[in-house]
Simulated scan of single mutants.
Amino acid sequence: MSALSFTPATTDRRVSDEDRAAILAAPGFGQHFTDFMAFARWHAGTGWGEDALIPYGPITLSPASAVLHYAQEIFEGLKAFRHADGSIWTFRPERNAARLQRSARRLALPELPTEDFLASLRAVAAADEPWVPEPTGEASLYLRPFMFANEDFLGVRAAKTVDYYVIASPAGAYFPRGVQPLVVWITDEFARAGTGGTGAAKCGGNYASSLQGKAEAAEHGADEVMFLDSETHTCIDELSGMNVFAVTSDGRLLTPSLTGSILEGVTRESILQLAADRGLEPVEQRLVASEVVEQIAEGTITEMFAAGTAAVITPIGELRARGGSWTIGDGGSGATTLSLRQELTDIQYGRIPDRHGWLTRLA
């Protein structure tokens, strides 16, 4: 049972019904925020406490707060979906809780128990119920749990005071163009993370290190960047915030194996299961970039796609690099890609049976 209750606070700072309706009509991604957020604080020696559901608003930090100097910070991302009967559900939140715990261990932060993680999601979803979009299209309420060191101390050691929050944001499509094939640039200059580093943790530094690569991709007319491993610069790791997959003509679904520098995506894990369910052969292995483009050129790889909580499943139509460009299949959205995407979202929105028990009701 959860030790934290996240008792609701009262507020008169709610967004008006009219303004909220206008936001929900065109939410974009990560641009607007709800009325409440969950909060808890950890102290060395006493553990987690001070939990509450409080009005969404600015966080006050001391200039000496440890997170500002040593980046001791982690986060998660998941969505709340409204079903046709009005209920609100989320997708495999226990996997996000486990990943937050793994990230906490890597960043020397305290682990938040799974039940407390789930309690924080339920508190926010219940308080911000009017913000969860109707089940038309693929709109959802994006939930962002995060944790950071908040001790006033400039010595280099793990902080003894840590804050945890959950904020929420109504979300439409992650890519402004919607479900359209991406052009992806393979960078040979920048690496996202290295073996033994923080690549397998979901921490802000990994995303900061991807930004120059994304800027390089944009300079070459691409939508996204693909990073190679930092040791040999030959094997595919992932995109800036998404795992990558390839569909082959002989019925295999390829994805880079988890090497310690790749984030273990919840969507990634789910896709591997759905692929196996339909008779595709999931293959996790080191994917050498030069071999991948050869297989694209000869037609062995017929589809590619990116996957993550925000992007769901998004097709990749073209790879570009300094050595050339390669159109995948006909450059459009592959049938297997779109079929997997439809199945995944149908499960999330309760349109088809949840045969794996992946959904958890929040409100």
Rank of each mutant, 00 (worst) to 15 (best):
I262T: 07
A215P: 00
T360I: 06
V67R: 02
L68K: 02
V179Y: 14
A66H: 15
A158H: 08
S325E: 15
A275E: 07
R41H: 04
A276V: 02
A173Y: 04
T195F: 13
F146M: 07
S230L: 02
G30C: 07
Q348C: 03
L362F: 10
H83I: 09
A246G: 09
E264Y: 01
V179M: 11
G205T: 06
Q212R: 14
A310E: 04
A191H: 15
L258Q: 12
G265R: 02
R13D: 13
D163Q: 13
V283Y: 03
F190K: 00
L228Q: 09
A26R: 14
T10D: 14
S2Y: 01
T7H: 08
G77P: 11
R355C: 12
I167V: 15
G332M: 05
I316D: 02
A38W: 05
P55F: 10
D330V: 09
M242T: 00
V288R: 14
P315S: 08
G137I: 11
E134H: 11
A208G: 15
Q295Y: 05
Y349I: 05
V124Y: 04
G86H: 05
A108R: 11
G308L: 00
Y164G: 05
S2W: 02
E76L: 07
D250Q: 07
L340V: 05
G45C: 07
M226N: 06
P113R: 03
D17P: 04
G317A: 08
Q285V: 11
G178S: 10
Y164N: 05
